[in-house]
Simulated assay, not measured.
Amino acid sequence: MATFSKFFNTNTNITMLDDLIPSMGLPAFISAIVLCCVGFYLIRKLSVDTKIPVRDSSKNHNWSTIEVSSKAWYCSICDMFLVTGIGVFCDCCGVCACPEDVKKANLKLPCKAIVSTNDVQLHHWVKGNLPLGTICYICDEECCLEPGLNDFQCCWCQRTVHTECLDKMGQVCDFGSFRNMIVPPSCVQVARRKGALNKHLLLRAVKDPGWENWTPLVVIGNKKSGNSDGAQVLSEFRKYLNPVQVIDLSERKPQAALQWCVLLAPRPVKLLIAGGDGTVAWVMTSSYKMDLDVRNQAYKKKI
């Protein structure tokens, strides 16, 4: 009280600290504040977040460390050979980078688009680092016969072409063999999380592209499951599908992943659950609680 009186005129009508503390006393007042904070935290922790997060692919790539592989990897920026365990690759589009060029790759090389306002999907060509034994779609000859960053692959339809054959490819992409499993970027509608920055996006709605026999595939897994097998499965499917179709249970509960069934109803959705008995039971129990029509036709394999 004395400290306040040194700086303020005592004749001024000022609410002092004593007026803010209830008659119960300072210790009890502090205890009540602490209990309220703890209660708020527990409610947020235990509540089920049914929103599907959407990564803003315009900001950064989804980098993963390059593991031991039978093929050679090259930086998409400087063309340098990448050593296992040091270089990184984007498991969505296939761009690779050495540690020094990660920022440049994020700025110069666009990642696989999750959302798009363009109804016509164009090929998204990524140079080099093609799978072993790939064949050119135009001339039917093997690609990447020489070391270095050679030839191209579309990260949507997965077609590969020689550099000299690229001009013979059309611009429009038909999503290739997995067309009926993929949710096109033009069909994904997102909303910005209230009060958050631009990078925090949530899946708001999904439009039907109107394709015959279109049955989108949603992959559910836990990257912490097994000996990182779950992480490898999720990473592999991001390459072939729209990355938003791949849900990591270490970050979201099954109810969030199952929102796909709600958003696409009455269109059927195929769910691939990558995990053991516990993961499968967790997802199935959540589906029954959400009153979803589940028809189990899955082949189950533990990871």
Results as ranks from 00 to 15, higher is better:
Phe4Val: 02
Phe8Gly: 03
Asn11Ser: 15
Thr12Lys: 12
Asn13Phe: 09
Asn13Leu: 14
Ile14Leu: 13
Leu17Cys: 04
Asp18Thr: 13
Asp19Glu: 15
Leu20Glu: 06
Ile21Ala: 04
Ser23Asn: 07
Ser23Phe: 06
Gly25Val: 00
Gly25Ala: 01
Leu26Pro: 04
Ala28Ser: 10
Ala28Pro: 01
Phe29His: 04
Ala32Gly: 05
Ile33Trp: 01
Cys37Tyr: 11
Phe40Gln: 10
Phe40Leu: 12
Asp49Asn: 15
Asp49Ala: 13
Pro53Met: 03
Lys59Met: 14
Lys59Asn: 07
Ser64Thr: 10
Thr65His: 00
Glu67Tyr: 05
Ser76Gly: 07
Ile77Glu: 05
Phe81Tyr: 13
Phe81Ser: 15
Leu82His: 03
Val83His: 12
Gly85Phe: 03
Gly85Glu: 04
Ile86Pro: 00
Gly87Tyr: 03
Gly87Thr: 05
Val88Leu: 09
Cys93Glu: 00
Val95Pro: 00
Cys98His: 04
Cys98Lys: 01
Asp101Val: 04
Val102Arg: 01
Lys103Val: 10
Lys104Phe: 08
Leu109Asp: 01
Leu109Lys: 02
Pro110Ala: 14
Lys112Asn: 00
Ala113Gly: 02
Ala113Pro: 01
Ile114Pro: 01
Val115Asn: 05
Ser116Glu: 14
Val120Ser: 14
His123Gln: 05
His124Trp: 08
Trp125Phe: 12
Trp125Leu: 08
Lys127Glu: 13
Asn129Ser: 01
Asn129Phe: 00
Pro131Arg: 12
Gly133Trp: 14
Thr134Leu: 10
Ile135Asp: 08
Tyr137Leu: 12
Ile138Asn: 01
Cys139Leu: 12
Cys139Thr: 11
Glu141Asp: 14
Glu142Asp: 08
Leu145Asp: 06
Asn150Lys: 15
Phe152Gln: 05
Phe152His: 15
Cys154Arg: 06
Glu164Phe: 10
Glu164Thr: 10
Cys165Glu: 05
Cys165Asp: 08
Leu166Val: 08
Asp167Leu: 07
Gln171Asn: 13
Asp174Gly: 09
Phe175Gln: 07
Phe178Trp: 09
Phe178Cys: 11
Arg179Lys: 15
Asn180Thr: 11
Pro185His: 13
Cys187Tyr: 02
Gln189Leu: 12
Val190Pro: 02
Ala191Thr: 13
Arg192Cys: 06
His200Trp: 09
His200Gly: 02
Leu201Arg: 01
Leu202His: 07
Leu203Pro: 00
Ala205Glu: 13
Ala205Cys: 04
Ala205Trp: 03
Val206Ala: 02
Thr215Ala: 04
Val219Cys: 07
Ile220Phe: 07
Asn222Ser: 15
Asn222Lys: 11
Gly226Asn: 03
Gly226Glu: 03
Gly226Met: 02
Gly230Arg: 00
Val233Asn: 00
Leu234Phe: 03
Arg238Met: 11
Leu241Phe: 07
Asn242Trp: 06
Asn242Pro: 04
Ile247Val: 15
Ile247Glu: 06
Leu249Glu: 04
Glu251Tyr: 04
Glu251Asp: 13
Lys253Gln: 14
Lys253Leu: 14
Gln255Cys: 06
Ala256Thr: 08
Val262Tyr: 04
Val262Leu: 04
Val262Cys: 02
Leu263Phe: 09
Lys270Met: 05
Lys270Ile: 05
Leu272Arg: 11
Leu272Cys: 12
Ala274Leu: 08
Asp277Ile: 02
Trp282Tyr: 14
Val283Trp: 01
Met290Ser: 06
Val294Lys: 10
Arg295Met: 10
Gln297His: 09
Ala298Pro: 03
Tyr299Gln: 10
